[in-house]
């Protein structure tokens, strides 16, 4: 199998689906001829023609609204919002429309669309190229929210998202497009080629939505993470010497409650990690779920390691970013509670 980085894996997912299903098409700002600012749609226009992979106006509302109309018609558009920070002009179309059309039409109309968007920090993108707005979507009934953490999952999850009959918001952790990032910004980043998850089959396969992965089995405590934070958490576990069980959620809604509960019941301790600000972040939901489902098994308070409740700051990137040091400290604190 070829070693793919996450960009190549996502590109391969689009390629596979466009070859398989003539109803799949891809568009977005710079996503046509140029192939996207992160190159995820590279080569698709050349291979599939102008009407299947094309540039759109700078209009996230228009991109998402037209995708909804196409979905209602029966197509499966995969649209790119260039940065998650730009998704808000299209938010009404996601929250008021895509998510509710199946319900309000009693199942007659539905919207099988995928909205891809790079998210997250660690790239010195400042407040408009670093945000993690996933909780603004996990709160909305009727959409699914997916975040891969490696090339293999990225491809399999994107194919699942495209084949899914419900609207999916697919967040791509852009910090790890080219290699898994431990959070040690002062150390060189390994390319994906050195990571086993870069073994990506060329053809069609799926990673199911709604299923988490235990990426590091352990007995001391459970870490719930997704996207870039999976790799930061793995680094923190390795460096702290704590035998953490690291769970990569992969899908935030619907979340894999069984895997979470099984792990926390085993370890009795839980640390939740995300880049997004803390207040009303997705970690709050995870915290509530763990408390509701595992309360009598908990031996320590559930800890959250998150971004701060500030806009994403430029010069303070590494103060804001929840790196392995902060994650490790939270793990130690959680272990110290008796």
């Amino acid at each position: 199998m070829p070693a793919m980085n996450m960009i190549q894996a996502l590109n391969s997912a689009l390629d596979v689906m466009m070859a398989k299903d003539p109803n799949v098409l891809a568009y977005g700002e710079d996503a046509g001829y140029f192939g996207g600012v992160f190159r995820v749609t590279d080569g698709l226009q050349k291979k599939y023609g102008l009407t299947r992979a094309f540039d759109s106006p700078i209009s996230e509302g228009g991109i998402i609204a037209t995708a909804i109309g196409m979905g209602v018609y029966g197509l499966r558009p995969v649209v790119e919002v260039q940065f998650a920070d730009y998704i808000y002009p299209g938010y009404d179309q996601i929250v008021s429309e895509a998510s509710k059309i199946r319900y309000r039409s009693a199942g007659e109309f539905f919207v099988p669309i995928t909205i891809r968007t790079p998210y997250g920090g660690g790239i010195f993108g400042g407040q408009t190229h670093s945000q993690s707005p996933e909780s603004l979507f996990t709160h909305i009934a009727g959409i699914k929210t997916v975040i891969p953490s490696n090339p293999y999952d990225a491809k399999g999850l994107l194919i699942s998202a495209i084949e899914d009959d419900d609207p999916v918001v697919f967040f791509e952790p852009k910090r790890i497009y080219n290699g898994p990032f431990s959070g040690h910004h002062d150390q060189p980043v390994l390319p994906w080629a050195k990571h086993p998850a870069s073994d990506v089959p060329e053809g069609h396969y799926t990673v199911p939505l709604g299923k988490a992965a235990v990426v590091r089995p352990g007995n001391d405590l459970t870490v719930l993470a997704y996207g870039t934070m999976v790799h930061v958490s793995l680094a923190a576990a390795a460096e702290s010497g704590i035998d953490a069980e690291v769970i990569d959620l992969r899908t935030l809604v619907p979340v894999d409650i069984d895997t979470i509960v099984e792990s926390v019941k085993k370890t009795g301790r839980c640390v939740i990690v995300h880049e997004a600000p803390r207040t009303s972040g997705y970690g709050a939901e995870l915290c509530a779920l763990v408390q509701e489902n595992c309360f009598w098994h908990l031996e320590a308070p559930i800890a959250r390691v998150t971004g701060f409740d500030t806009p994403y700051p430029h010069a303070f990137e590494w103060h804001y970013f929840p790196g392995p040091k902060r994650v490790g400290e939270a793990m130690k604190r959680t272990m110290e509670t008796r």
Partner: peptide, 29 residues
């Protein structure tokens, strides 16, 4: 807020104007 796929009448939204670009998307499709 009627809806009828059979009669090619899209489910009405109370959020005004959202259907305008959706119609364009349908037409593009």
């Amino acid at each position: 807020m009627y809806s009828s796929k059979e009669y090619n009448f899209f489910t009405i939204s109370g959020n005004l104007g959202t259907q305008f670009p959706q119609a364009v998307g349908w037409a593009m499709a």
